[in-house]
Simulated assay, not measured.
Amino acid sequence: MSQNDDIEKGGIHAITPQQALGQNNGTLPASYGQAVRRSNLGNPGTLGLFSFASTTLILSLFNAQTRGIHAPNVVVGMAVFCGGLVQLLAGMWEFPRGNTFGGTAFASYGAFWMSYATILIPGSGILAAYTDASDELSSGLGIFLITWTLVTFFFLIVALRKNVGFIALFSVLTITFALLAAGELAASVNATKAGGVTGVITAFIAYYIGLSELLAAEDMAVVRLPLGIFPKRVD
């Protein structure tokens, strides 16, 4: 078995119909093997991870008020097209590969970025509706971020038997969302800045995992980056 296969199995990508369904007892109907088989599609994981990381890095630097930036609106273009559209496409490409986890994660965060961008776009009228009630806007954004804290925690639960890389990614991302939610609900600039710092860490973890998967897909890669893959559990 090649190292590439090891990384694929331990990463965000399911390989066989049994792995995709979490069933390894040979009870799948014979027709299922004809409908779902190993795909020759290229691995969309790096595309989704790099898009997520790049958009997260930009917004997190804004949240940390790097160079005195307070308004995050410059991230709108990235949030719509890179973090949003590209991740959504990566998620849709994961499903034909039999990877429910990867497809759900990429599509979900793609939707997150597009919905967040919609809030910031003036033409949406969302921010304008709260001009006379800033506390209500902060509460609304806080609830929005709490929801994504929960979603990310659910992904963390699933990632606990994948590899160390994904455990680190979803752990730090959960903390990031929680800090940003606290910053909105408690009107705490320090909490928002802390969320920006942990967001930067999240972005670089995602870059690392994405680069690891990209290198694993190359037959003549100059280096391999370990993800801390757990051995397959035998029931």
Rank of each mutant, 00 (worst) to 15 (best):
A117T: 01
A194W: 05
F230H: 07
A105N: 14
G183R: 07
V172C: 13
G33C: 15
V222A: 12
L156V: 15
K193E: 06
F153L: 09
G84Y: 07
I69L: 08
D235A: 11
L156M: 14
G84P: 10
T16R: 07
P226G: 06
V86Y: 03
A35G: 05
V74W: 07
D6R: 15
P96D: 09
L47F: 11
T56N: 12
L41W: 05
G142H: 07
K162E: 02
G123S: 07
V200S: 08
P122R: 03
A178S: 09
T118Y: 00
S124G: 01
R38P: 07
A105C: 14
A217E: 09
I121P: 03
F177W: 04
L59M: 05
I15Y: 15
V164R: 10
L85H: 04
S51F: 11
L88S: 05
F153G: 14
D132W: 07
A216L: 02
S39W: 08
I167C: 06
N4E: 13
V197W: 02
Y32W: 06
P72T: 03
Q23P: 15
Q34W: 15
P17D: 12
G22C: 12
T66Q: 08
E94I: 10
G103L: 08
T202H: 06
M114K: 00
G98Q: 03
V172P: 03
F166G: 10
S138N: 14
N190I: 08
L169N: 02
G42P: 07
F177L: 06
A187K: 13
G125P: 00
F154L: 15
A191N: 11
F62N: 10
T149D: 05
I126R: 00
W148S: 13
V80Q: 14
D6L: 10
G77M: 11
L28P: 02
W93K: 14
V197R: 08
L85F: 13
Y116C: 00
S124L: 01
F204G: 01
V164L: 10
E94H: 09
A129Q: 02
L41Y: 03
G142N: 02
L85E: 10
S188L: 04
R224H: 04
G110L: 00
K232C: 00
I119E: 00
I58F: 06
I205D: 00
G11Q: 05
L41G: 14
A178P: 01
D219A: 11
K232P: 01
A79M: 11
Y208L: 01
L173Q: 10
I205L: 05
G102K: 04
P96G: 13
K193C: 12
N43P: 01
P72G: 09
T152P: 08
A194M: 03
Y32C: 13
F101M: 01
G210N: 09
S60M: 05
I209N: 06
T176H: 06
A178V: 05
A221V: 02
M78I: 15
